[in-house]
Design a protein around this nucleic acid. Structure first.
Lengths: 220, 220
DNA sequence: ATGGGAATAATGTGATCACAGATCATCGCG
DNA sequence: CGCGATGATCTGTGATCACATTATTCCCAT
């Protein structure tokens, strides 16, 4: 920390550890698609933008590269990942494997208040599409899914899924920016209907198609 | 690196980055069950045992905690994870989800040489059981599975699975040490038979039972 | 104008240090 | 003899520095 002597002795201790603040900040930028694929980052730059030295920035970057949110180019340069089409399809198929399972586990615990909240998030999602706001679209889309999966009470599986989302963040940004569509994807309504009906098979199918269709016809 | 002046100028540059050596070494210790759950580790101790300073040790630890291989106890102390029974069951169910999928993807590419190699690994596995060598048992067991999954050509999915194995490493060590069984699990033979027969459904089932049975009756 | 090479700047890496908080041992008191 | 307080030690954190390597810039020769 090094505070008392050389520093002007700011009275409040850091409410959160510095490297954790940096980690969370960068993670959100990547997952929400605020960064395009291949965006170069520097330790000193990250540190400066968060008001810390290189050390916490390095630890945050190390953590994020471990999760696939960032990649090291040749000789240590760090950047957001540029995924090949095969990798995109593989990550989509992982989503297609995990998300129906998480939804199914959440189904029995999904009471009406939860469904209403998901519907409200879905409205925000539709507005983001009309506004052509890619970041807000990605954010609300993930929030829609996460709100459901939180009910599955499977933290390890949700954690795994979030690393997949993380890896796809910059790619989704690039795709949704290129696309400029103005109509909402139809599958969220199917998900909500299956939840209301308590229909496990329909729910699993709705999620699988939402996940795969969402990327399949974008990758060319 | 800091070599030329203060150091005796050892001529060879580090073939691999120091933090990466530390990361790989620790990762193997955890995954192969060389460490029991709750084993405390210290940055300075890790650094000393690898002949480096705290800095690379810190980065390796940060990376491993991101993958769930290590946990931070209250106020930053680092240790191997002590999993609750619910967490163990959840991780087992993730294995039961991913491993049949990986096996199925590998099936079409599993030629005879691969099956022979798996059989040889399985023999080593059986010997490790007779020798009551938990670490070697865990190592060969994972190698048996990984040899198959490598053929699936799905690096992201295999990477996800390996983080699950990592989280289970110390727990498996504790369980297999406590158990002291001397008979090989029967499911590996079923896996090999399904591979030879090219029977996808049987292969998926064999893996699912191998994964779940392997842990289910140990957790009490 | 253009291509190449040298000088310069930028970047990641690892070591070291000061510091704060936690942990542990020891000693003294009841 | 037991137990709590107090001092010493241990541990993670963040900053800073030296260094090697890579990238960039700039200038001159063709």
């Amino acid at each position: 920390m090094q505070s008392s002597i050389l520093r002007p002795a700011l009275a409040d201790p850091p409410a959160q550890l510095a490297h954790d603040r940096v980690y969370r900040g960068l993670r959100q930028q990547v997952m929400h698609g605020e960064l395009f694929p291949g965006t170069p980052l520097t330790l000193r730059g990250i540190g400066k933008s968060f008001g810390v030295s290189m050390t916490p920035a390095r630890e945050a970057v190390r953590r994020l590269t471990a999760e696939g949110a960032l990649t090291f180019s040749a000789s240590g340069r760090v950047a957001t990942p540029e995924l090949s089409n095969e990798r995109i399809e593989e990550l989509a198929s992982i989503r297609a494997l995990l998300e129906p399972e998480l939804a199914s586990r959440a189904l029995r615990r999904a009471h009406l208040a939860l469904i209403d909240r998901m519907e409200s998030i879905n409205d925000s999602n539709a507005r983001a599409i009309h506004r052509q706001d890619p970041v807000e679209y990605i954010r609300t889309n993930l929030e829609f899914h996460r709100t459901l999966y939180l009910r599955a009470q499977s933290p390890a599986m949700l954690g795994l899924l979030e690393t997949v989302w993380l890896q796809l963040g910059p790619t989704m940004r690039a795709l949704y920016t290129r696309l400029k569509r103005t109509t909402a994807p139809p599958h969220h309504r199917l998900i909500l209907e299956a939840l209301r009906a308590g229909d496990d098979a329909a729910l699993r199918l709705a999620l699988r198609t939402d996940v795969t269709q969402g990327l399949r016809h974008l990758v060319v």
